[in-house]
Design a protein around this nucleic acid. Sequence first.
DNA 1: CATGAATGAGTATTCATTCAT
DNA 2: TATGAATGAATACTCATTCAT
Lengths: 219, 219, 219, 219
Amino acid sequence: MNVAANKKGGHPRDPQLTNRRSEQILAAASSIFAAVGYRQTDVQVIADSLEVGKGTIYRYFSSKEKLFLASVDRGMRQLQERIREATEAVEDPLDQIAAGIRAYLEFFDQHGEMIELLIQERAEFKDRKKPTYFEYKESNIERWRGLYDKLVEQGRLRAVPVDRMLDVISDTLYGAVFTDVFAGRQKSFEVQAEDIVDIVFRGILKESERGERHLGDDA
Amino acid sequence: MNVAANKKGGHPRDPQLTNRRSEQILAAASSIFAAVGYRQTDVQVIADSLEVGKGTIYRYFSSKEKLFLASVDRGMRQLQERIREATEAVEDPLDQIAAGIRAYLEFFDQHGEMIELLIQERAEFKDRKKPTYFEYKESNIERWRGLYDKLVEQGRLRAVPVDRMLDVISDTLYGAVFTDVFAGRQKSFEVQAEDIVDIVFRGILKESERGERHLGDDA
Amino acid sequence: MNVAANKKGGHPRDPQLTNRRSEQILAAASSIFAAVGYRQTDVQVIADSLEVGKGTIYRYFSSKEKLFLASVDRGMRQLQERIREATEAVEDPLDQIAAGIRAYLEFFDQHGEMIELLIQERAEFKDRKKPTYFEYKESNIERWRGLYDKLVEQGRLRAVPVDRMLDVISDTLYGAVFTDVFAGRQKSFEVQAEDIVDIVFRGILKESERGERHLGDDA
Amino acid sequence: MNVAANKKGGHPRDPQLTNRRSEQILAAASSIFAAVGYRQTDVQVIADSLEVGKGTIYRYFSSKEKLFLASVDRGMRQLQERIREATEAVEDPLDQIAAGIRAYLEFFDQHGEMIELLIQERAEFKDRKKPTYFEYKESNIERWRGLYDKLVEQGRLRAVPVDRMLDVISDTLYGAVFTDVFAGRQKSFEVQAEDIVDIVFRGILKESERGERHLGDDA
DNA sequence: CATGAATGAGTATTCATTCAT
DNA sequence: TATGAATGAATACTCATTCAT
């Protein structure tokens, strides 16, 4: 009643309600899109799962495509948020890196459906849209680059271009979560995080082999 | 020419021709499936690009799905073959690993369409089929595991479980080729191979930091 | 008008309308299926004849096959109803038989399309479905058998197994309506009914020949 | 070798062989068309069952339709022949009628597939062709009409128009064989023939009821 | 004569989107 | 606002027929 007063009669518009509805729709849509794929998903099924009419979905999202892309976007925002939470309180920069890796793996462990959505997005909209994942990645990378730069300056990381490190780490993580889902890898995300940090931090070579080796050297 | 005589008269069956036709169809199909996606691909378009009738495609592959999966399989066989060629002549095992990484990246650099096919396969057939990529990966991994085992024994690789190394390396490569295509990364495959080998072999930490650090340590 | 209120807002569901629509669709479908045959019928043509979209047809009947079979069933229900109406008020059992024969012939005279549908059903669905005609026939035959039994008891019909009479009469009627349509017989249904009743009631032999003759007798 | 001499080289044309081939094709086609239906029959399947190439079928019958119609025609010729054989030696005209009825039922008992072909013909070619069955029927009816005329003259059959008798009898037979096949009636053809002859010859009424009754009389 | 590779016309069904109620 | 009835575009696959060998 004491919501924003409305001069005449009719429904008061409640933006809270609208947002809650949108959020419910996105949650339902995410899990259905992930479960059966974008093309195979009938908007009617999403409506049914929410016990609303199909038209109602269209009141909130003007097309199936918009609904799907909003679902992906919501997931990426959640990932970003989770990583921020997991790293902002960590003191030591190296630990921050490790914590970020762990949070990343944990998120996809808990939200396997996001991997499906990323795949579906690429499969269906390859020509129409830069993958949302990479949009978010780019927008976040600067922060990490600063961190790495400082560590190199401090002599805690090797003096190689930081982009090289960033690329390898992000490729590894990206590959890891896809492989987890597609090949059904069983390792817990905690162990997986430790393993990745170990290799990425220290490499696979014994100290004695870490000399001047270059790709293709036979000496 | 002197093909096996037919029982009666008639049109001779030439298995050579059949194979050549199949191969042509797969090549055309691969590039079109990759370019526009599985669902968006009209089999008529593949037929047109070969200047044959649609029925001819169906003589060789009994469904669009079979044709697609055969295209993926052909690509994976080519990848396997390329890696074999690139590594079999290399003497030193560490160089063999490096050569394998390089060959992998080179293959996808030259066959970007295969990344698209792998995505499409997963997007369309997630419930019906184990991804072909991972089938091939599993069938090849043993050979690599043997190599790594020996290197650990010889004290050339660190004494960590080889599966940990194999996982991180294969995740990195998988992530790298996807990122290359999806985010339009520009690095040449040679440089990328060197960068990955460098990090994976030596890690990112300065020697001084390579001590007992564990995930989440703050000491 | 005052249809049951919907839970929420929205488009009311009117079962009356739904039934009327179904009936209209079945009527249109019957005549088109009969006119051009099941296979040759494009569902679009049925939709066009009703000035609705093709999707609308599929809202009411989930497949062309279902629509067709429902059309046949509707026809058989009408036949059953017509015969019931025509016979229930008739006093004398022999007249009831005659009235049934007449009603049967009249129905197919007025609904020649039903013959076509019965043919189409058998031609297209021979392995999937017992012909609807014979399902209805079986479900109605008991009533007639009772009538004949009583007439034999009363000494008004000859003392031969009633199934023999029922078979011959039903074969004759079935054969008659098919022949009418397929060979374009011109006789009016009234005359045809009288002719059939005459022969079936009295036979073709002169009294003098009605003795002990058996099939193949030469005496 | 001493077949019609052929001036130069090349194959001598052997009309015997040609006829035998045609006959084999028709036999195979009849049973396949009957088993799966005209539309569902793939000409390739007929070719396979004969172990010849598909093109060979087309050398003998220029289209699937021609092949089908020739199959029907062959069947009707066989029926005609069978009835002729069964009746020509019979002395007494009434016995001739009975023998014809019996032969008709026997033929379809042994050639159930012909019923299917007649159905298929009507279903597929209703607008293009008078049913072959009725063409044959018309061409044979005169002979029977003569027989009946004479029997009426001789006072052995009742003095009703012979066409009335012919119609009822042919309708009954036609209905009987269809019902046998479609409803799976079990009666042997011999018994069925006796039953039909009994009713058609003598009618169902007791003598006392055979008076002046007309359709719909209630007196 | 016989063959079978090649062809391409023809069609049922789904489902995103609209809009009257 | 919410609904769901109506719509029609879009698409894989079959198989009769042809004709080079």
